[in-house]
Simulated scan of single mutants.
Amino acid sequence: MLRFASPWFFLLLLLVPFLIWYRRWRHRPPTMASSALFPVVGIGSSAVLRLQPLVPAIKYMALVLIIVALARPQWGTERTEVQTEGINIVLALDLSTSMAALDFKKKGRVVDRLEAVKGVVQDFVAGRTGDRIGMVVFGTHAYTQLPLTRDYNTMVSMLDRLKIGAAGERTAIGDAIGISIKRLADIESKSNIIILLTDGQSNAGELSPDTAGQIAKEKNIKIYTIGVGTRGKAPFRVNDPLFGERYVYQRVNIDEDTLNAIAEKTGGLYFRAEDFSGLQQIYDTIDKLEKTEVKVDIFADYSEIYPWLLFPAILLLPLYVILRNTRYLVVP
């Protein structure tokens, strides 16, 4: 990896264009050329004369090399090692069809619930350090989208690919918690957390939310639950075969009692997000509540490579001086 130990010296490169302009201004031709009075016909320029404009370039090339050398280019490797276990976190996200409700605004633009959740969760993931994060998605069925990992770039990429209805139309909250518990059992940690986000009621799956919450409690897994969406009715975009695309309002219900009971039983908290800023604040709150002190060791091994630039510059400068005072001598 290439780096520069003193990059501020690059500001000196701004002088090079000025020096080129100043040279041209100082050596500009006179307003009345002597050839106008004494025209010369049939005299061509030699190869030596044609190379004369390149002589100043040698000086400027040497100057640029010296400036870059002053910036101290270095080549080497840098390795970062995290010296802590961190937290195991599983994000359980609802992909049921009710997540298509258009009751959120993001930067002034109306978006569905899943689109709003994606952006907030991406920011949450980006703010973690040293934690293993996994992702479980659920609808009628629940499955692992990504096992526990510290590869946050992959996590963000997987979030982008999530589609409403990919796991079925209904909502299996208990199964989502059950799959999340299994993922947390893959890698031991002193702290295991599930952040479950849904916008509906549990109406599918084999495991009841109450039973899943009890299992999580026994395994010392904390669950934060988030109910997302406005209260009452929410707008949905539908394609009507007769009237084309239009919006209809449908009643949406969140089983807040169940979500609150799960969180309370496992030592977590229940949150309700009715708008985008509220959703951001919830994940910010969880982020602050579940912070671990991460010890990071950085190992760097760099070698100086400025001599490879300085030596050519030292050779070019004498060459310029010799050419300027011999073959390409300029007489005032």
Score class of each variant (00 low, 15 high):
residue 38 F to N: 15
residue 38 F to A: 15
residue 331 V to G: 05
residue 133 I to Y: 10
residue 73 P to K: 13
residue 191 S to G: 09
residue 238 V to D: 11
residue 328 Y to E: 02
residue 210 D to W: 11
residue 303 S to V: 09
residue 185 A to H: 08
residue 290 E to F: 10
residue 146 L to G: 07
residue 291 K to L: 07
residue 81 E to P: 00
residue 51 L to G: 07
residue 200 G to T: 04
residue 322 I to Q: 12
residue 326 T to C: 09
residue 305 I to G: 06
residue 103 D to T: 05
residue 147 P to A: 07
residue 22 Y to T: 02
residue 253 N to D: 15
residue 5 A to Y: 06
residue 7 P to F: 08
residue 237 R to E: 05
residue 105 K to A: 14
residue 195 I to D: 02
residue 267 G to M: 11
residue 131 D to C: 10
residue 123 D to E: 15
residue 24 R to N: 13
residue 299 F to D: 12
residue 89 I to T: 08
residue 164 I to T: 13
residue 43 I to C: 13
residue 78 E to W: 09
residue 111 V to H: 04
residue 53 P to L: 13
residue 176 A to E: 04
residue 183 R to Y: 01
residue 217 K to G: 08
residue 95 L to P: 03
residue 300 A to S: 15
residue 299 F to A: 08
residue 254 I to Y: 08
residue 242 L to P: 01
residue 297 D to K: 12
residue 23 R to T: 02
residue 142 A to L: 03
residue 207 L to I: 15
residue 317 L to E: 09
residue 24 R to F: 00
residue 121 V to Y: 03
residue 290 E to N: 07
residue 239 N to L: 09
residue 68 V to L: 13
residue 182 K to A: 10
residue 331 V to T: 14
residue 152 Y to W: 05
residue 303 S to L: 07
residue 94 D to A: 04
residue 123 D to R: 14
residue 55 V to F: 07
residue 308 W to D: 05
residue 97 T to A: 10
residue 135 M to K: 06
residue 213 G to N: 02
residue 293 E to F: 01
residue 75 W to G: 08
residue 228 V to Q: 03
residue 263 A to T: 03
residue 248 V to M: 05
residue 311 F to A: 14
residue 270 Y to A: 03
residue 152 Y to G: 06
residue 262 I to Y: 04
residue 18 F to Y: 09
residue 299 F to S: 13
residue 246 R to P: 05
residue 188 E to F: 00
residue 70 L to S: 09
residue 275 D to C: 05
residue 246 R to I: 03
residue 223 I to Q: 02
residue 155 M to P: 01
residue 116 A to F: 01
residue 162 L to Q: 06
residue 115 E to T: 15
residue 52 Q to K: 13
residue 288 K to F: 00
residue 222 K to G: 00
residue 266 T to L: 04
residue 208 S to F: 03
residue 322 I to C: 12
residue 188 E to W: 00
residue 267 G to I: 09
residue 255 D to I: 08
residue 208 S to W: 01
residue 191 S to I: 05
residue 270 Y to M: 07
residue 140 T to P: 04
residue 69 A to H: 11
residue 110 V to L: 12
residue 228 V to D: 02
residue 147 P to M: 06
residue 231 R to D: 10
residue 153 N to L: 11
residue 132 R to P: 01
residue 160 D to I: 01
residue 135 M to Q: 12
residue 262 I to E: 13
residue 119 G to I: 05
residue 30 P to A: 14
residue 61 M to N: 03
residue 8 W to R: 11
residue 310 L to N: 14
